[in-house]
Nucleic acid binder design. Sequence first.
DNA 1: CGCCTGGTTGACACGTATCAATAATTGTGG
DNA 2: CCACAATTATTGATACGTGTCAACCAGGCG
Lengths: 244, 244
Amino acid sequence: MSSGSCLVAKLENFEPLCDADRELIAALEKDERAIRGRTHLRRSGMPYSELYALKKGWVYSYTILPDGRRQILQIHVPGDIVGLYDAPFDHASHDLEAAANSIVCPFPKAALDPIFRHSPTMTALLFTFAMIDQVVYLDRLRALGRLNAVDRVGHFLLTILARMRLTGEKEGARFEFPLTQTDVADATGLTNVSVSKASKELREEGLADWREGRVEILDEDALARRTSFSNRFDRIDVSWFPRP
Amino acid sequence: MSSGSCLVAKLENFEPLCDADRELIAALEKDERAIRGRTHLRRSGMPYSELYALKKGWVYSYTILPDGRRQILQIHVPGDIVGLYDAPFDHASHDLEAAANSIVCPFPKAALDPIFRHSPTMTALLFTFAMIDQVVYLDRLRALGRLNAVDRVGHFLLTILARMRLTGEKEGARFEFPLTQTDVADATGLTNVSVSKASKELREEGLADWREGRVEILDEDALARRTSFSNRFDRIDVSWFPRP
DNA sequence: CGCCTGGTTGACACGTATCAATAATTGTGG
DNA sequence: CCACAATTATTGATACGTGTCAACCAGGCG
């Protein structure tokens, strides 16, 4: 956090970085671009060459179905590398939009080369986060496949909270949350109406209070239990990392 | 394919491997273990240290909900590294079960170390496949969130077909498929009854014929169109790979 | 032969979608 | 500063898709 980079802060939750590694990250973050809320960073199917380190704000990826409905796929918070999963493709696989005013650091995907080439530690870290993200998406898959509306929304909020804790305070269960109920509906495979009812239910049961752009998880244990949520960022094993 | 390794075959779809890289893979695949169908490779929450290169057969990962229902998360086919997403964790995040008699090559996760350390090409390839898998899971997320029963099953079959083509013949639209309707239901967030009805519908509409352990996609274009399926293994960009 | 698993079919239940009306809030321009 | 429009959230009535339950058939296997 001393360097002011949330990406560094996030990585250092798991493995200390040497100066050379910090420089590799600084190279990724040297440019900044401000993005207004509800504007696009990238359109699906367009050729592209940039990835983004998200410094501040909220960005999500989504797709539109032929009938116009939307599915939000990922929610990115500061410390995330946005669009990393697009690295293998020469055209963007999804649309990317800022949910709120944000600051991103664009860099070309070729900038990954020196990381792979010179820093086994950073490579292992990037790899690790990619794997964790996979498991997180599988958890969401489970939620969409098998949970009811209330639990889907609860699970979703817990997922966001776990991500926020990587770069922010570890203890609180409260955060600013600029997404609308329609956004959450599109992320959880529901409708805005169901999310409204689910949110009311969560409040009435004393599980979570989400109102006016703020979320407070009131009973984290109970909510985690009924949605079988696991925080995948706990208990990361770095013992297998390549070390000098 | 000349070496008999489907992992090599899969990787070489995208980037030629040098002899040193082939040796790295051979090291992963030096042990073989036969697994009978419907038996477990790994139980969720147990400490573990092995990953598996799947050589033959079918393996899936799943979780059980408190009420006993099951959600299948991933289907692995030969050429996949099973459990790679568990590398960051010291306990298995999901259950792993063979769907049919299979052959796996177990290796310790520390075996990834020489790859990260000595082969930027292999590292980039592993990274690439991890990213592609992420996008594939996001596509499934979309399917579970927004598609109806018939389209979910159709989309699921197309996803399997695309994976089979990586190591098998590229042209056919037919494959052996040992999963039961209950398995597919648990993978698509449906019930066995809905899958039975969806499968009938796909057959009657001339889109796909799935019977007696075999699948034939009858109208690939139409099915892809109505489910907005994209084959993420097409048009992979390897231009950014680190090269000597 | 009889059991067990997997698949099919139909009746009915239930949860979420859809539609619609309204309120509360935010933003905009006069 | 107010008026007006647009967005977001709330609530209730109804529709629809899939779940649930149950009966039945077919095939494999002890």
